[in-house]
Design a protein around this nucleic acid. Structure first.
Lengths: 141, 141
DNA sequence: AAATATGTTACACTTACTATAACAAATAGG
DNA sequence: CCTATTTGTTATAGTAAGTGTAACATATTT
């Protein structure tokens, strides 16, 4: 799954959980509502569970529930939880090695500073602000 | 070729042309110096030629030459010339359609504003400043 | 005319992504 | 304790994208 797909899928799932809080929702239910494959959802939500953003319970009457308030969840946090890399990592690994000059170091440094800016931007965006923009009402206050 | 690979390969080639200016260099010569495949280089340099950043000449005594001064070439310009998309386009196409809410529009908008910031950053970086950082001497003044 | 070099297309190879299936582990209820 | 349910994880098949290289037409110089 690509970085942006993971992020948007996670946001969709979290919005649905906020909308239907406090009722626990199974991966199948979330899948029906969001159009995302239930197996993909379980992968993402298990990571979000480890990151203490949702709770998960197996078995009958199990499912996923939102754990943190939407106003206290930001995009950067979601991204870091579902992706082991830094936000929108730009590859420099393909730059051919053994150069006379340190191009790899240069681009690595450049892309790092760009990433810091992206992260700063995403940190400022809360799940609640996204829901407000999309006119989704959160039941998690 | 990925976005970042294209960009770094182009920068390497342009640095070499600035370093060896005004001598025209063939794709094979650039390839030997940079470690980049000559065929790949010709693809990139033909685009840079259309973008008036280098000149190209076929036949004996042909090859590529820098056309613009390194201080007047910036990263954004290089990127736009070799890539038809905007800088480091973040995909949103994979977000599943037919939603109750406009997630696609939201992320499209978010990623667009991030892209604008990246573009602004890259516009401020000239080829000359990269060469200075890497301690490469330009013969194109 | 011959040699050289770009410009472009094509192709095989590898890697990454996508979607889905399968099943073990955990939980709830009777 | 047994069954149904649901997460968590692994595997797999199919598709798409990226990489490296080759081939050859086109253009230019000598």
């Amino acid at each position: 799954m690509s970085a942006s797909t993971k992020l948007s899928s996670s946001v969709k799932a979290l919005c649905f959980l906020a909308e239907s809080y406090p009722e626990p929702k199974t991966s199948n239910e979330i899948g029906e509502n969001t159009g995302i494959n239930a197996s993909k959802l379980r992968k993402l939500l298990s990571l979000l569970s480890k990151g203490k953003i949702v709770t998960s319970n197996q078995g009958t009457k199990g499912g996923f529930q939102l754990l943190k308030a939407p106003k206290n969840i930001n995009l950067q946090e979601i991204y870091c939880t579902i992706e082991d890399r830094k936000a929108f990592h730009l590859k420099v690994s393909e730059i051919n090695g053994q150069d006379e000059y340190d191009y790899l170091g240069y681009f690595d440094n450049l892309f790092s500073t760009i990433q810091v800016e992206i992260e700063n931007k995403m940190t400022k965006i809360s799940l609640l602000s996204i829901m407000n923009d999309l006119k989704i009402k959160s039941k998690f206050k």
